[in-house]
Design a protein around this nucleic acid. Structure first.
Length: 155
DNA sequence: GCCAACGTTGGC
DNA sequence: GCCAACGTTGGC
């Protein structure tokens, strides 16, 4: 059973081009420090799940690509490193607080699907992303929503 | 840069 | 357990 997700990133921090430039086009998704998102990463992400890669807090917020989960939830080791900006004293290798997954790029969309265009699409009304005050950085997406976004990307 | 909405912290 | 204060997110 494949799950569908949307993952937010600020392109100034890590963009779709950064992912595309990686030799394996793969990255660990470190630094999530929100419990609801943590629970999803730890408990619900499975290898093979599909991901909408979303640019937030930028000029044109949009889904800019798709990816696949290639490693399910495992402890975020950045939380153990005092030099990391993601360091968290309360997380330890014995009893990790924070988790991450690995994702691999599927495709960078030729034409990004903007937040604006998603708001205008009746079929996407229920998307978590579009709910008022929604700021979950890792969020579930329905298969139908995932397919609709891709349809919008491909004309 | 503004500000609404949300999550976390900590005093009581 | 309540809730005010604070910090962060993220669209605009």
């Amino acid at each position: 059973m494949t799950n569908y997700w949307l993952m937010k990133t600020e392109p100034t921090t890590f963009s779709i081009d950064d992912l595309a430039a990686d030799p394996d086009q793969t990255t660990c998704w470190e630094g999530v420090r929100n419990y609801q998102a943590r629970n999803l990463l730890r408990d619900d992400f499975c290898v093979g799940d599909r991901v909408l890669f979303y640019h937030s807090a930028c000029k044109e917020p949009a889904v800019v690509g798709t990816a696949t989960v290639v490693r399910a939830g495992y402890p975020d080791s950045h939380a153990f490193d005092p030099r990391s900006k993601y360091f968290d004293q309360k997380s330890s290798p014995d009893n990790p607080t924070w988790f991450m997954v690995d994702i691999k790029l599927d495709e960078k969309l030729e034409s990004p699907v903007t937040l604006k265009s998603m708001r205008e699409r009746a079929g996407l009304k229920g998307m978590v992303l579009l709910q008022k005050g929604s700021r979950l950085s890792v969020q579930p997406v329905k298969k139908k929503e995932f397919d609709t976004v891709l349809k919008m990307a491909n004309g």
